[in-house]
Amino acid sequence: MNLAVKIGRLRLKNPVMVASGTFGTEYAELVNINSLGAIVMKTITLRPRSGNSPPRIVETASGMLNSIGLENKGLDDFIENKIPSLTKVEVPLIASIAGNDEKEFVQLAKRLTKIRRIAALELNLSCPNIKYGARKELIAHDEKETYRIVKSVRNATGLTLIAKLSPNVTDITKIAKAAEDGGADSISLTNTFLGLAVDIEARKPRLGNITGGLSGPAIKPLALRMVWEAHKKVSIPIIGIGGIMDYKDAIEFILCGASAIQIGMANFVNPKVSTEVIDGIKKYLTKNKIDNMNMVVGGLKS
């Protein structure tokens, strides 16, 4: 059976990745990391960021809101300490990067292109919890900005580029197309949905940052719809993300047009979930007498 997927120049042995910010070597004792298709690492920025004020997370109905705020130690620490510490990890590492502006994105991409261990870049154009420089809105809210940033990074690196887009837009297909036109090898859909939760006794927001990004099973139908729409408009592979809890959810995304998927919040609930999803996909294919996963991609019947 062939589960392998090609995303740009990157070849994954199976379509199951773990999403940025939801996985780390802390899980090494609980799941076989090397069975994964790839790991998308926690987003890094050029300089360290201390992140948002607590509380940073709150559980909502079948999901969670987070406003971590891209807490990270910055690019230098990532290269000097993080990457060398991952000697036991054999699967492709995808670095997730966020810049305040075009210059920072390019700088991040150039430095990481020289790091052999990095197999691809995911451009985080869509974190709802930070301000990108002086901009009032996310890069992925704007077609032209998305095109411009992707294009600049494309010119700076030969690495496989994945543009992670925001669902908080009027028409996802336009942004997806802009990313494709800019030279992205793939788009990941979607980042979290901007949301809010209220403590009625205190009459205050439950998050320190007031708003946060919603993830988990609550957003799955919304993310599926976006993957399905984008799949009709772009020809580059789509990575589906949004509330995947088991292999059935993963197959839904694949049928809607995702060539691969990422698992996020479910890692917190069940650290073994990604390996269970891989096994489940295999069983699904066997049951349906399909020997190549790619045959299922976009196979949603009308």
């Binding site: 910010g21 939801t22 996985f23 780390g24 802390e26 899980y27 926690k42 992140g51 607590p54 509380p55 940073r56 997370i57 709150v58 559980e59 969670m64 987070n66 971590i68 807490e71 919040m265 890692n267 917190f268």
Partner: peptide
């Protein structure tokens, strides 16, 4: 503190 992962991955429970 409210926690999601409980293991140091999500950075959701800062002090």
């Amino acid at each position: 503190e409210y926690m999601a992962c409980g293991i140091g991955v999500c950075l959701g429970c800062p002090v």
